[in-house]
Amino acid sequence: MAIVFEKTKGLTDKPFHYCPGCTHGIIHRIIAEVMCEQDILENTIGVSSVGCTYNNYEYFACDMAQAAHGRAPAVATGIKRVHPDHTVFTYQGDGDLASIGTAEIVHAAARGENISVFFVNNAVYGMTSGQMAPTTLLGQVTTTSPFGRDSGLQGYPINVSEMLATLTGAVYIERVMITDFKNIQAAKRAVAKAFRVQKQGLGFSMVEFLSTCPTNWGKSPVESIDWLKENMVPQYPLGVFKGKDLEV
């Protein structure tokens, strides 16, 4: 019998611990598939961060470091300076990257650090049970904005991709969403492009994934995908914010 689908060698056999309907598993898989397709698995070093994906060093089959909360871009910088010919990526959530780790991500981008950042934005802190994130939408109910995020009290969502795209050192930035086959394929193309940008030594690349958190949103997986499209996309439009015409 012909094999029509098999698990990528870019992932270990360790079962994911993610909640039903969570899109981290899909994002892990496409990153792993791209590593194998580009034949860079043996030359890639990833950095896990703090949040739901704290232990994805057990899932990716490449060498991995686990970083303190928000510090993954600094850790990745240290790794990349030792191994400039290796592919180095970070995998960070919105609390990690857009709140506690803002200095590290901004300066890694400003330095044009030749790393790829995979930024998963689900508008909420998942691991610690649904607190308000910097990317939480106005009006969105979370455990620390129980009456809905109020701009007068809690300010406004941060559009990280648009913000980092203003920096010269950032050469490729794209926002995608993990909602359906077509968009997942588009996300995979973005991951592949980010790694190619790095391979060619062009500088900082980032893919932002709009992602769901059914558990903390209090919705079913299917409802979550609809909610993402209806509410997150207007605030976080999809597209390439930097490096649209980049031929890699």
Partner: peptide, 14 residues
Amino acid sequence: VAAINMVYGASAAG
């Protein structure tokens, strides 16, 4: 903070 985490990364990389 970033500096010590860069040390962490560079040391982890050998």
